[in-house]
Design a binder for these strands. Structure first.
Lengths: 193, 193
DNA sequence: TAACTAAACTAACAAGTGTTAGTTTGATAT
DNA sequence: ATATCAAACTAACACTTGTTAGTTTAGTTA
């Protein structure tokens, strides 16, 4: 009957460990017993800190999704060229993914297992993509970008940025600014000489 | 009164339906009862056609992986410029993904649930990536391509091609050749004017 | 018609699932 | 020393999982 207020750091530890396991096996394949064992406790003990498995997934995904939304808003509000805005988007992805590559895996691969929060997530994602596309269209209109189908451009850039979570952990030695620079070069200027 | 369905077709039907469900929810979240219900039969009846859930996944993923391996071999053996080889790789991905976008989802997202066949799959994938990278390096050496880090280039192009399964089903009206052409433009020449 | 057979069925299983209830532990503050 | 309480524990639950065994159904062939 007692109300228990758990340690905040332990809760963060649960989120971090969950994200790691979700990345390796996917949300559905990770059991509460797997998670508990990795943390060195019993499954039931997890419920002193969180309410449900679902809450863990929601927190991991939505906190990142909101971070992207926030970043996009700031980029939209900046008075810069479209090319500069695209470069800022690349930096945004490199930054967020560097700080939370495990969480990015869940966002990419396990969002469909969100229940009540799925609609909210999809709304954020759709908004993000719409804003991204509008920057590309603006770039074409202002003659900064080639007049390729904006959807193809959006798809191509976003696919690469969304896959960063697979790649960044393997290239820890590389500097974030260097990576963002290289990506900008490849994505914007191409590789053909 | 009852519809008679030839055996081999039924097995193919199971693979196709599985791939569709695996794409929507992931391998682990799809139960044999889900699969059976979608096919309009009982779960136990599935075992008249397949040996295990695992066999379904293995077949879906490995048949595609071998198709890629075969395609890459032919491209390597062709005596063409590196740029032309890269364009052929793009066509290969568009082609295979168009024919089996659901299976591509499993290949991308559920390969870690392969059991005995996982090592074989990873070997095929590693080989494919090595061959891809060697074409890029060859292009740089022959002065066809800019001297960007080949890993960044590989990562960027492959990320886009691997994500095609998410995009192609939504753009059914578009012609495969047109899509491959647009992708080649964006991926090779960039979008910056 | 009778035998054969592919492919469906019902029933059951052992193991594993997320979660709850109630209890114990051990460090901290009085 | 005692009381407090976050955070661990044990035990159990109702349900779901992949899979097996044995049976029925209904077309095809002899």
């Amino acid at each position: 009957m007692k109300k228990i207020i758990p340690t905040e750091t332990r809760k963060q530890e649960i989120f971090a460990t969950s994200a790691k396991l979700f990345k390796e096996k996917g949300y559905s394949a990770v059991t509460m017993r797997d998670l508990a064992q990795t943390l060195g406790i019993k499954a039931a003990s997890l419920y002193n800190h969180i309410h449900s498995k679902q809450e863990i997934l929601s927190h991991i995904i939505l906190s990142i999704a909101e971070e992207f939304t926030e970043g996009m808003t700031q980029i939209l509000n900046s008075k810069e060229s479209s090319i500069q805005k695209l470069k800022k988007i690349i930096i945004l992805h490199v930054e967020i993914t560097s700080n939370n590559s495990n969480g990015m895996a869940s966002l990419n691969n396990d969002w469909m297992h969100l229940e009540e929060k799925q609609d909210y997530y999809l709304e954020l994602r759709l908004n993000y993509e719409d804003n991204f596309r509008s920057i590309i269209k603006q770039g074409i209109a202002s003659n900064e970008l080639k007049a390729v189908d904006p959807d193809v451009t959006l798809f191509s850039i976003l696919s690469t940025l969304r896959s960063l979570y697979l790649w960044i952990p393997k290239k820890e030695e590389i500097n974030k600014d260097v990576l963002a620079g290289n990506l900008g070069e490849v994505l914007l200027d191409g590789i053909n000489k």
